[in-house]
Computed example of a mutant assay.
Amino acid sequence: MRLKDKVCLVTGGANGLGAEMAKLFAKEGAQVVAADMSDLTYEASNVEGYKLNVTDSGACKEIFDYVVEKYGKIDVLVNNAGITRDALTHKIDDEMWDLVMDVNLKGVFNLTKHVGPHMMQNGAGSIINISSVVGEYGNIGQANYAATKAGVIGLSKTWAKEYARKGAAVRVNAIAPGYIMTDILKTVPQDLLDKFAKMTMMGRLGQPEEIAKAALFLASDEASYITGHTLSVNGGMRL
């Protein structure tokens, strides 16, 4: 019960990595609010679904107020919501660029601007921003996505400094997953999956629960002396 009596807000929590994090956090004793534009694809005790578009700054303020009013606090924020609109750079139009920026970068900012000061006032908290191996190393056909995920790392380092001021034990870290077997990857041809697996030192692709366990560690008091860090969970992948 590493998150006993903790209140956790997870964006993109309806499915994929967000769902695995929400379920694991709840299993470890937390009350979880899983925010997403879609309905939850699962049922789990102590996980409440909430419809949210992270690009809407007003809606982000509303969910912040809602969670604090209902549960009294927010101990953990996981900024997981994200999208891709992949293409070679010269084929990325304004809509593809702006949408990825709005969800993956502005969406992270929209929630943290409220949750960070709240945690600072409470004296403690953990913010986990989901980046990507692509944000660390870049990738052909993902200029927009790579830019946002690199930006998330920069935000994490900045907020680690901002929200630890005045002695507050607020920690801000990023997780950079490699290729993880979510529903999106299940549509990729097997030969490509095999190629990705060979690019890792572990010789395989990751599982969603392995990212969730990394997030659990950073959310818990076991990571009390870790902040401003990017945890690469990629099986030793190099792009």
Rank of each mutant, 00 (worst) to 15 (best):
A14Q: 02
A22H: 05
A22K: 01
K23V: 14
L24G: 00
A26D: 11
E28I: 09
V33H: 02
S38N: 14
D39R: 05
L40I: 12
S45D: 15
G49A: 00
Y50A: 04
N53T: 12
S57R: 10
S57F: 09
S57V: 15
G58L: 09
C60N: 09
C60L: 10
F64I: 07
V67Q: 00
E69H: 10
Y71K: 02
G72S: 03
G72F: 05
V76K: 03
L77F: 06
N79I: 02
N79M: 05
T84G: 12
T89I: 13
T89R: 08
D93A: 07
D93G: 07
E95W: 06
W97M: 06
L99C: 08
V100F: 03
D102E: 15
V103S: 11
V103G: 11
N110F: 00
K113C: 05
H118Q: 12
H118P: 06
M120Y: 08
Q121Y: 13
G125P: 06
I127H: 08
V134G: 07
E136M: 07
E136C: 07
G138M: 03
I140T: 14
G141T: 09
Q142D: 10
A143C: 11
A143G: 08
A147W: 11
T148P: 04
K149D: 04
A150P: 07
A150R: 08
L155E: 13
S156Q: 11
K157P: 06
K157R: 15
T158Q: 15
A160W: 13
Y163I: 13
R165L: 13
K166Q: 14
K166L: 13
K166P: 04
A168C: 06
A168S: 13
V170M: 12
V172L: 09
A176V: 01
P177D: 07
Y179A: 12
I180H: 00
M181R: 08
K186Y: 04
V188K: 08
D191T: 11
L192S: 11
K195T: 15
K195E: 15
F196S: 01
A197M: 09
K198S: 15
K198V: 12
M201A: 15
M202Q: 14
G206C: 05
Q207S: 08
Y225I: 01
V233Q: 00
N234L: 11
R238G: 04
L239F: 07
L239Q: 10
